[in-house]
């Protein structure tokens, strides 16, 4: 009976993962390997294709109600733009997508059984500290050694192009590529990922938590469910559960470096304003 409960929990979390996260690992891997009936992603590999890619996203993502109104501005392609302006605008776009992703992760967290019964301040703390870790894990399936899918899988941006940007933009994604290439070798699927994300969110050692015990109890149940899931789903992968948990240590370092880069950007780039939601998360984080 106990393992039936753990399986039910895994199924529930997988269903809410599919509900709240539009681009699954299965879909991303199909796009990356060309095994999808959809058209291939648009490739951004230099400043010119970045400008063209911007136009591509703007034209495809505008809701029909706004399309006419914004058509003249479609693409925001300003021919005289300097590389600096294009980089800053791209960064702002990443921020908007990240803020939207925080909303998706929040909805997923709310669907974890017991999460909404936790103290509201603790729910905030768990999200504040967990959300960037979750976003980095969710980025992994979108990446391979050569680049990453962005804009819901519509665009592939090359790793070399990201490395060619000026500092610190060029330094921001490289650590995520290094992590993702190793993480992808564990070959977790979407149903494994759903449980792992819940484990990350339910970390009882986040600074400032008021009531740790119920969080640890919830995490323990999800951990049991993840352990069982990995044994059943990957019977030949020895010690996979331990290997997955070890990734949580790397994640904390990645987040602290990421926050450092953003603080650096805030100081050095006068044109950059941080999204208010991301500001809330990053302020006094580490």
């Amino acid at each position: 009976p106990e393992s039936a409960d753990l399986r039910a929990l895994a199924k529930h979390l997988y269903e809410s993962y599919l509900k709240y996260f539009p681009l699954t690992k299965a879909k991303a891997r199909a796009i990356l390997s060309g095994k999808t009936s959809d058209s291939s992603p648009f490739v951004i590999h230099d400043m010119r294709s970045l400008s063209e890619g911007e136009q591509f996203i703007n034209c495809r993502q505008i809701p029909p109600s706004l399309a006419n109104q914004q058509q003249s501005d479609c693409g925001l392609l300003h021919p005289g733009d300097s590389a600096e302006e294009v980089e800053v605008r791209f960064f702002q776009r990443c921020q908007s997508r990240s803020a939207e992703a925080v909303r998706e992760v929040t909805e997923f967290a709310k669907s974890i059984p017991g999460f909404m019964e936790l103290d509201l301040n603790d729910q905030v703390t768990l999200l504040k500290y967990g959300v960037i870790e979750v976003l980095i894990i969710m980025m992994a399936p979108l990446m391979n050694k050569d680049g990453t899918l962005i804009a819901y899988g519509q665009i592939f941006m090359t790793r070399e192009f990201l490395k060619s940007l000026r500092k610190p933009f060029c330094q921001m994604m490289e650590p995520k590529f290094e992590f993702s290439v190793k993480f992808n070798m564990l070959e977790m699927d979407d149903s494994d990922m759903a449980l792992f994300l819940a484990v990350i969110i339910l970390s009882g050692d986040r600074p400032g938590l008021l009531n740790v015990k119920p969080i640890e109890d919830l995490q323990e149940t999800v951990l049991h469910s993840l352990e069982l899931q990995l044994k059943m789903n990957h019977p030949d992968s020895l010690q996979l559960f331990a290997k997955v948990l070890q990734k949580m240590t790397d994640l904390r370092q990645l987040v602290s470096d990421h926050v450092h880069f953003i603080q650096l950007l805030k100081k050095t780039e006068v044109d950059i304003c941080l999204h208010p939601l991301l500001q809330e998360i990053i302020r006094d984080l580490y």
Binding site: A99, E100, R103, T106, E107, V124, P276, E280, I281
Partner: peptide, 20 residues
């Protein structure tokens, strides 16, 4: 609470827009 008002709102209401 003031420091994290958007997170609070997101937790209490799923329709809160984030693109402010």
């Amino acid at each position: 609470k003031e420091k994290h008002k958007i997170l609070h709102r997101l937790l209490q209401n799923s329709t809160t827009p984030v693109d402010l």
